[in-house]
Design a protein around this nucleic acid. Sequence first.
DNA 1: AATATGTATGTAATTGATTACATTAATTAT
DNA 2: ATAATTAATGTAATCAATTACATACATATT
Lengths: 330, 330
Amino acid sequence: MANIQDVAALAGVSVATVSRVLNNSTSVVPGTRDRVLSAIRELNYNPNLTARNLRRAQTKMVLVLLPTVANPFYSRIVKGMEDIAHKNGYNVMLCNTNSDPAREKVYLELLKNRLADGAVLMSSDFETEYLMELGSIWPIVQCCEYNENTTLSRISINNEQAAYKAVEHLTKLGHKRIGMISAKNNFISTALREKGYKRALSDAGIALDPGFIMYGDYGYKSGLRLTTQLLSLENPPSALFAISDMMAIGGIKAAIQKGFSIPDDFAAVGFDNISFSSMYSPALTTISQPKYDMGCVAMELLLKGISGEETMQKTIVLEHELIIRESTVN
Amino acid sequence: MANIQDVAALAGVSVATVSRVLNNSTSVVPGTRDRVLSAIRELNYNPNLTARNLRRAQTKMVLVLLPTVANPFYSRIVKGMEDIAHKNGYNVMLCNTNSDPAREKVYLELLKNRLADGAVLMSSDFETEYLMELGSIWPIVQCCEYNENTTLSRISINNEQAAYKAVEHLTKLGHKRIGMISAKNNFISTALREKGYKRALSDAGIALDPGFIMYGDYGYKSGLRLTTQLLSLENPPSALFAISDMMAIGGIKAAIQKGFSIPDDFAAVGFDNISFSSMYSPALTTISQPKYDMGCVAMELLLKGISGEETMQKTIVLEHELIIRESTVN
DNA sequence: AATATGTATGTAATTGATTACATTAATTAT
DNA sequence: ATAATTAATGTAATCAATTACATACATATT
């Protein structure tokens, strides 16, 4: 493994000149430049980025913390983030936290160890104080989920309004008995979606039945279980609003297993528009978040923070969309 | 940001002693040790891993190259890899290559830049020579897919046998007209699965109809399109073997759209047993690969390679399993 | 008491780059 | 022809750690 000294020796120049050619920082006469370049080629030299990073006090690496890449919701977002990062010479380190606070912390502390220049949080259980402290030293942006007590930049959709629109779609179809399956977590989106659900019911003149709201986690199994329970009620709901597509799909599967026909006997709306939703039979009505764009914007914001271009807190809200498919209308 | 010098100064010792406490390499008397420890706490000191890595000539980082995390097939594998890596103090850098040779190369060359200690390849278009050259310097293991001309370690299932079993399942159910949807790529698994398909037909005394094998990519849309074509044949197949679950699901959707009833009019077998397969309606019959274990074993092999414990080429074949669900039998 | 051994700690080299500052050579101005 | 300016390149400090080697002191051995 050749280093910059070897290249300098072979080219008959100093390491400074090699470095200049490497970074074309100052002008080097074509002759020397060529000699350096061919020495590089001959020795198959690649700069040691660890050394460069140490000297430059930067890593060109950013962290992206998310619960799990297994949830397809994240993959488009991540793609957006990666595209922007790569375009700017940054690499992305995807961190699966499994929503485990200990793991979250381990990853985020890589900032302290100077292994990354900044981080995007896609969901986290960090305390406000801790986040603010780290955020005062390193750029951190929150994407989709956020702790509203921090002054960190964030990017999301209007979850309350989106949920309202989803439930309104059901009430307009004539549904009066609408269940909701939600999650027991302290995500801001969860609370807001529940709020939107309630407002939509209220605006449609439907009394809220607390027994119609069930709690699990974000997953398919949870949706299957909770919906099975809802459908076992004496007077079960005719429609369902789920806070994730995975849960909605679980709900539909439960209804199918009970012999319901969809959407005639039972309608369902999900949230996220993961790729799977359109593949499912019946295809799922859902709220689409501009996932790719969210990823792009979040990363752009982060990189601006890193370069010092943008230091003010920004709160960006992107547009969502109701996508109507077979799970609510024929 | 305090550095080791600051800690040494505050504790009234030399940097060497601080380093000793940090790595508890040599014994330090409890008194000094405590002074160092409290200086570290007081200054909120965190070692700069870039400097450490430069000095130690290691990064405690490994690359995992895969086409895309959007394919849920990879998520369990990645989980296994991460678990093993973390247990050994390594971090994983997930690299979405989108099967783009240029991106693949960019990522793998991070090895040359000393930003990672080794790599797992989950699919790649690298030339044998290039791979061998890099592999002679850095530990590289191949997982699931592999270039059989290299002497790199690899871990996979027996794809030929697995495909055989899948198709045999269909012939045993009485199917005589079995289509296959495959992909145009040069993955070894693709070739082997096709081989298994052909052998199973042959063993069942069924003549191969070349028009029954269609090629697309690994995805859902491809499966939908190709199966629509197959079902439009004058004498369409009554069953389908797809080289991925995503394709199989596309195939089922196509059949449903054509009004077929599954599995009575049309049966389908997939490959991979992604989480989605059991959620789908109908649930998908498929070949299950021990994804988590494959990830674990691949990472263990890689880490052994990095530590120099294991330098011989290893070829590990793990067991697969046919999982029978609603898409082939009621 | 003199010597040998061992333990705790310090000094300074090292890792591989970047870069401030110094030097040299070439060009331009007078 | 000489001084001033500019351009190209070199020297050595720097980043923040680890670690080989040196040193000082305490304890053990004879």
